[in-house]
Nucleic acid binder design. Sequence first.
DNA 1: CCGTATCCTTGAAGATACTG
DNA 2: CAGTATCTTCAAGGATACGG
Lengths: 93, 93
Amino acid sequence: MSRWGVLVLLALSEGTLRWGELRREVDGISEKMLASTLRTLEADGIVVRTSYPEVPPRVEYSLSPLGEELMQRMLPLVGWVAEHAEGIVEQQA
Amino acid sequence: MSRWGVLVLLALSEGTLRWGELRREVDGISEKMLASTLRTLEADGIVVRTSYPEVPPRVEYSLSPLGEELMQRMLPLVGWVAEHAEGIVEQQA
DNA sequence: CCGTATCCTTGAAGATACTG
DNA sequence: CAGTATCTTCAAGGATACGG
């Protein structure tokens, strides 16, 4: 799971989101990458996709129980990296 | 940091290792990837490289304090993934 | 023993356009 | 709204050979 996977999961860890919301939430992701990322995460059983047979179509994505477990372990790491990323980049100079 | 980065850090989280030991410990890594992975991790301040001016040359790699902090947050995640990876792959079928 | 240098392949990811 | 299709680019990574 790549950079985009983490960002998508991060967005979903705050609650269920629709396709369009995810596109806006995950900054800079292309439609192609969002689609393939979501398909992978769904195949892995980490994300649940629910589509409502309406017009216009509505599709919601949320974390599965497995996904919740995963994020519980991933959030501390992501937080730490976010805090230290700046310092790490600086130090390289 | 890629797959190799994680595996190298995982090996080093059990203690200091020499170049040759890392090559054997991290299964399947090429010399090129080990070199570039170590250079990146060192530049990031996560790994410390110590070379002893001896003949034959001896070089040791270990986690920096920053690296220790990082691994403290990464180990639970890695453990969880290791436990669930099999089930996730199965479920895809 | 501890790497560096080079060439090459392959897959990730961006851009763009289109559809049920 | 929620995607798919196609084309292209670019860098990660493998293979191999060599050097201090």
